[in-house]
């Protein structure tokens, strides 16, 4: 017998014959667990939680403003004004803001990576990014600075809401769903939190669609 058969046989023997016959039904219904109370202003909560987890948050009215916000952010921190963006954001006027941005997946030495986001999750201030041809996963990962553009109207309360939206809009999961909550960090040395481990050192979230306090 194969390992698979042996393992399944041992489990099957320990399980009663009628137990769990509804497993496929449970999955089809995918019931929610208890949801924490979150208040009504989702965008505000998203911004506050993201800030708490060491992301920088900038609200703005329109997508057109994003290149200038990014340029200012990089200049203030004396960071190189160049990098890569998702092909889905290639049409923005990066050059007009003095930025040198290529539309492609990131290489190991690209200083800035600019992405969109499928949604933002208010509960924890978390970005949800889906991988794909127009949304390569490396852009939010390899550069030292990650800029994420989130539409205010797409911010949801919880991860459960985000899953429902994903099922509705895409049907199935992409290769990678990445939830991102601030710059990469480690506390492995003396349990001291240090920002900037193997991923970005800083994350700027631009919320498009008006102030997140409204």
């Amino acid at each position: 017998m194969s390992a698979r058969e042996n393992i399944l046989a041992r489990i099957g023997k320990a399980r009663g014959p009628g137990v769990g016959v509804d497993s496929d039904d449970v999955i089809r219904r995918h019931p929610r667990g208890p949801i924490p109370p979150l208040g009504n202003n989702l965008a505000k909560r998203f911004g506050e939680q993201a800030t708490r987890l060491a992301s920088d948050v900038a609200p703005t009215a329109t997508l057109m403003d994003v290149p200038k916000i990014v340029a200012d952010y990089l200049r203030e921190r004396q960071l190189p004004p160049k990098g890569v963006c998702w092909p889905s954001l290639a049409a923005l006027d990066w050059q007009g803001a003095g930025l040198e941005i290529e539309s492609r997946a990131a290489h190991g030495d690209d200083p800035v990576g600019i992405t969109g986001a499928f949604t933002g999750i208010a509960e924890t201030g978390t970005l949800m990014l889906l991988s794909g041809a127009q949304t390569p996963a490396t852009v939010s990962l390899l550069p030292e600075t990650h800029v994420a553009v989130v539409e205010k109207v797409r911010i949801v309360a919880t991860m459960e809401d985000a899953w429902d939206r994903l099922r509705r809009e895409h049907g199935k999961l992409p290769r990678a769903v990445n939830f991102i909550s601030g710059p990469s960090r480690t506390a492995d040395i003396e349990q001291t939190v240090t920002l900037g481990a193997h991923g970005p050192y800083r994350v700027l979230i631009v919320i498009v669609g008006g102030s997140w306090n409204e």
Partner: peptide, 30 residues
């Protein structure tokens, strides 16, 4: 409240994708 990254990985790189593994193996240990 949440770890910095939560990654949900499903299947292999799509035909038109520029990153992600081409082969994905999952080993289930007893």
């Amino acid at each position: 409240s949440i770890t910095n990254y939560v990654s949900v990985l499903t299947g292999t790189r799509g035909k038109d994708e520029s990153d992600g593994p081409e082969h994905f193996h999952v080993i289930l240990l007893d």
